[in-house]
Protein backbone atom coordinates (compact mmCIF):
# COMPACT_ATOMS: atom_id res chain seq x y z
CA UNK A 1 0.00 0.00 0.00
CA UNK A 2 1.54 3.32 -0.93
CA UNK A 3 1.76 6.26 1.44
CA UNK A 4 -1.00 8.19 -0.22
CA UNK A 5 -3.64 5.53 0.15
CA UNK A 6 -2.70 5.00 3.81
CA UNK A 7 -3.25 8.69 4.32
CA UNK A 8 -6.52 8.44 2.41
CA UNK A 9 -7.77 5.76 4.75
CA UNK A 10 -6.75 7.80 7.79
CA UNK A 11 -8.54 10.84 6.44
CA UNK A 12 -11.64 9.00 5.44
CA UNK A 13 -11.92 7.46 8.89
CA UNK A 14 -11.37 10.84 10.55
CA UNK A 15 -14.07 12.32 8.35
CA UNK A 16 -16.41 9.47 9.21
CA UNK A 17 -15.79 10.15 12.89
CA UNK A 18 -16.47 13.85 12.34
CA UNK A 19 -19.60 13.13 10.35
CA UNK A 20 -20.98 10.73 12.94
CA UNK A 21 -20.22 13.18 15.72
CA UNK A 22 -22.06 15.83 13.74
CA UNK A 23 -25.10 13.63 13.45
CA UNK A 24 -25.24 12.15 16.91
CA UNK A 25 -23.65 14.60 19.31
CA UNK A 26 -26.90 16.41 19.93
CA UNK A 27 -28.94 13.31 20.67
CA UNK A 28 -28.22 12.87 24.39
CA UNK A 29 -30.61 14.66 26.69
CA UNK A 30 -29.13 14.01 30.14
CA UNK A 31 -27.05 16.82 31.65
CA UNK A 32 -23.53 16.92 30.23
CA UNK A 33 -21.03 15.08 32.45
CA UNK A 34 -23.59 13.05 34.42
CA UNK A 35 -22.01 9.65 35.12
CA UNK A 36 -24.15 6.52 35.51
CA UNK A 37 -22.31 3.95 37.66
CA UNK A 38 -23.79 0.50 37.33
CA UNK A 39 -21.17 -2.19 37.86
CA UNK A 40 -23.11 -3.84 40.68
CA UNK A 41 -26.33 -1.90 41.39
CA UNK A 42 -28.68 -3.63 38.94
CA UNK A 43 -27.44 -7.07 39.94
CA UNK A 44 -27.95 -6.17 43.61
CA UNK A 45 -31.50 -4.90 43.03
CA UNK A 46 -30.60 -1.23 43.54
CA UNK A 47 -31.18 1.54 41.00
CA UNK A 48 -27.95 2.56 39.21
CA UNK A 49 -26.01 5.49 40.75
CA UNK A 50 -26.00 8.86 38.99
CA UNK A 51 -23.09 11.14 39.79
CA UNK A 52 -23.63 14.77 38.64
CA UNK A 53 -20.31 16.47 37.75
CA UNK A 54 -21.96 19.89 37.31
CA UNK A 55 -23.33 19.86 40.87
CA UNK A 56 -20.03 18.84 42.44
CA UNK A 57 -17.79 21.14 40.39
CA UNK A 58 -19.72 24.15 41.66
CA UNK A 59 -18.46 23.08 45.12
CA UNK A 60 -15.17 21.30 44.42
CA UNK A 61 -12.26 21.46 41.99
CA UNK A 62 -11.57 18.30 40.03
CA UNK A 63 -8.42 17.82 42.13
CA UNK A 64 -10.30 16.99 45.36
CA UNK A 65 -11.78 13.88 43.77
CA UNK A 66 -9.42 12.96 40.98
CA UNK A 67 -6.19 13.48 42.94
CA UNK A 68 -6.95 13.48 46.70
CA UNK A 69 -9.65 10.80 46.70
CA UNK A 70 -8.10 8.86 43.82
CA UNK A 71 -11.10 8.60 41.47
CA UNK A 72 -9.65 7.37 38.16
CA UNK A 73 -10.77 9.33 35.06
CA UNK A 74 -12.91 6.51 33.77
CA UNK A 75 -16.60 5.97 34.35
CA UNK A 76 -17.14 2.63 36.03
CA UNK A 77 -13.39 2.26 36.43
CA UNK A 78 -13.15 2.57 40.20
CA UNK A 79 -14.81 -0.59 41.53
CA UNK A 80 -16.79 1.39 44.10
CA UNK A 81 -18.72 -0.64 46.71
CA UNK A 82 -20.83 0.39 49.70
CA UNK A 83 -18.27 -1.17 52.06
CA UNK A 84 -15.60 1.20 50.68
CA UNK A 85 -17.96 4.19 50.85
CA UNK A 86 -18.84 3.49 54.50
CA UNK A 87 -15.11 3.11 55.15
CA UNK A 88 -14.63 6.72 53.95
CA UNK A 89 -13.32 6.01 50.47
CA UNK A 90 -14.68 7.42 47.17
CA UNK A 91 -18.09 9.10 47.71
CA UNK A 92 -17.62 8.30 51.41
CA UNK A 93 -14.78 10.82 51.60
CA UNK A 94 -17.53 13.47 51.75
CA UNK A 95 -20.86 11.71 52.14
CA UNK A 96 -20.13 10.90 55.77
CA UNK A 97 -22.56 13.13 57.65
CA UNK A 98 -19.88 15.78 58.22
CA UNK A 99 -18.89 17.28 54.86
CA UNK A 100 -22.09 16.17 53.07
CA UNK A 101 -25.16 14.09 53.95
CA UNK A 102 -24.45 10.48 54.87
CA UNK A 103 -25.02 7.13 53.17
CA UNK A 104 -28.45 6.44 54.67
CA UNK A 105 -29.96 8.58 51.88
CA UNK A 106 -29.72 5.64 49.51
CA UNK A 107 -32.06 6.91 46.82
CA UNK A 108 -30.38 10.29 46.32
CA UNK A 109 -27.40 8.45 44.82
CA UNK A 110 -29.22 5.35 43.57
CA UNK A 111 -31.61 7.37 41.39
CA UNK A 112 -31.14 5.97 37.87
CA UNK A 113 -33.65 4.14 35.71
CA UNK A 114 -33.00 0.41 36.28
CA UNK A 115 -30.98 -1.10 33.46
CA UNK A 116 -29.15 2.12 32.48
CA UNK A 117 -25.58 1.07 31.63
CA UNK A 118 -22.42 2.61 33.10
CA UNK A 119 -21.55 5.65 30.98
CA UNK A 120 -20.76 9.34 30.98
CA UNK A 121 -23.34 11.55 29.28
CA UNK A 122 -22.56 13.95 26.51
CA UNK A 123 -19.52 11.93 25.53
CA UNK A 124 -18.90 13.06 21.94
CA UNK A 125 -16.83 10.02 21.06
CA UNK A 126 -19.25 7.38 22.23
CA UNK A 127 -21.71 7.19 19.32
CA UNK A 128 -19.06 7.04 16.64
CA UNK A 129 -16.75 4.36 17.91
CA UNK A 130 -16.43 2.45 21.14
CA UNK A 131 -13.63 4.03 23.14
CA UNK A 132 -10.47 2.10 23.63
CA UNK A 133 -10.32 1.93 27.41
Amino acid sequence: MNRLSIRNIKLVSLMTVALLIGIFSTSGSAEYGDVVINNYSDAEGMRPVIFPHWFHRIRYRCKTCHADLGFKLKSGGNDITMAKIIDGQYCGGCHNGEIAWAVENCDICHSGIPGTPTQVHGDTSKPAINKKR
Binding site: A30, I108, C109
Partner: peptide, 10 residues
Protein backbone atom coordinates in the same frame (compact mmCIF):
# COMPACT_ATOMS: atom_id res chain seq x y z
CA UNK B 1 -33.52 13.86 31.60
CA UNK B 2 -34.00 10.27 30.49
CA UNK B 3 -31.60 8.69 33.01
CA UNK B 4 -33.15 9.54 36.41
CA UNK B 5 -36.03 7.37 37.59
CA UNK B 6 -39.03 9.66 38.16
CA UNK B 7 -40.58 6.99 40.43
CA UNK B 8 -37.60 7.17 42.80
CA UNK B 9 -38.48 9.36 45.82
CA UNK B 10 -34.91 10.76 45.96
Amino acid sequence: DGIHDADNPG
